[in-house]
Design a binder for these strands. Structure first.
Lengths: 238, 238
DNA sequence: GTCACATTAATTGTATACAATTATACAAAC
DNA sequence: GTTTGTATAATTGTATACAATTAATGTGAC
């Protein structure tokens, strides 16, 4: 009886997944699930990831769980000790700072290349995004602003026309996702951020590669500075 | 009869592996095997990776093969199409150029941080490496030089004391491994490379971060230039 | 009490079995 | 000859079974 019941639950979970997600493979579903859980803090650094528990939790078998874990391991989000298990790794504040420094360089590079290679369509897309940013900044709609920020940078990743650079930046951006979310929720920062985005867009539009790179690097650097001032306020939480 | 025989072969392969390799998990063994095969051209872009064939070839089951493939997928070395299969992706010349550009920035950053943070032991290690480089450059021993080059950069990755940056650079270096191997096999380049390493080492020793960064970035840039002149010579091969 | 050792349980590692999907081959219709 | 449909084979996707390793527990000697 219990077995049948449990099986029914698993089947139901699976069915819901197949409907919602565009029927990707289970391992990618599991990968996204665990990564998000780590990045928004549901799984904390030091937590052990037990395959059977995860399998039950997600209603799948251990095989896709293992595939996902191997990927997370490669990304450095978990640490696997052979025959013992895997634990959540997470990032230290130092790691996040490092990522921002690295991003300021690589995003700068992306902006430089984008200024050289962007096509009219993507240019128009950027323009629209910046306009919308102006709108939502006035409205103080931080959720929309975060999304637009992601899109703005995403379009540039595409426009720089480098598979490798895009791949690197996509990952780096994900890692600091939670830090980034908090960052924009300061009105001052949102306003400053808007101006920075404007400058970057204008430099790209003018095909001024050097300026685009400079502004973008500054933009990322000021993001980390802002993050630090936020940290300073709730220092006791550490 | 055949089954028993085949099983014997697989067992023998496995035994040899357990002896030689320090008894790591199978998936990491498989991962390294396939990655190396792709990077030194045994598996060519477009080749299909069939799980059962790989399993037989390596004398393991499909599970570790799949785990390894998921990792390769994340690294961008293979492309997986659900329910169809995975094909080797490899890197285009443009990708390699991009990687060198990215490396010149990130290695520069690593050198900058290394100049600020390196300890006496690693500093001494660097000094020894540079001395040995001088020795083997005179001897035209390119195999040793390649190894020393890897060690030189490896020490700096360690010395910069950034988990994230080290992780990124380790991967990038692996991707251009085969390109790099050819590059040093030009006497002129070896000599020039030695001088560049010397300058970088001296800047780090003097704790001159800006100079270390500048010299390192130049070093990587000249490596790609050298690579291009090599390409120019055997252009017909494409 | 605690240390050593054996026994059991929990967990990971690997292999295999089965299901689902896609590719291939071949025949019939036009 | 081309196309369409169907049966078959090949391959991937998933789940489960079993082996190996490690952690936990308990028991007896001292």
């Amino acid at each position: 009886m219990e077995n049948i019941e449990e099986n029914g639950v698993a089947k139901a979970k699976r069915f819901a997944r197949l409907q919602s997600l565009e029927r990707y493979s289970l391992h990618s579903y599991v990968f996204n699930y665990i990564r998000d859980a780590i990045l928004d803090g549901r799984y904390k650094p030091g937590d052990a990831l037990v395959e059977t528990r995860l399998a039950e939790e997600l209603g799948v078998s251990r095989t896709p769980i293992r595939e996902a874990i191997r990927q997370l391991e490669l990304e450095g989000l978990v640490i696997s000790i052979p025959n013992k298990g895997v634990v959540v790794n997470g990032f230290s504040q130092q790691d996040i700072d490092d990522i921002y420094t690295i991003r300021s360089m690589l995003e700068g590079l992306a902006a430089r290349w984008a200024a050289q290679r962007i096509d009219q369509q993507k240019l128009k897309e950027l323009e629209e995004i910046v306009e919308l940013m102006g709108y939502y900044t006035k409205k103080n709609d931080f959720e929309q602003l975060t999304q637009l920020d992601t899109r703005f940078h995403g379009v540039i990743y595409e426009a720089c026309d480098s598979k490798v650079l895009k791949h690197l930046l996509d990952n780096l951006l994900r890692y600091v996702e939670q830090a980034r979310r908090g960052s924009l929720k300061v009105p001052m920062r949102a306003c400053q951020s808007l101006n920075e985005h404007r400058s970057i867009f204008e430099a790209i539009m003018k095909r001024n590669a050097a300026e685009a790179e400079k502004f973008m690097a500054k933009h990322i650097s000021s993001a980390i500075l802002n993050l630090h001032s936020l940290m300073g306020q709730n220092e006791k939480e550490n």
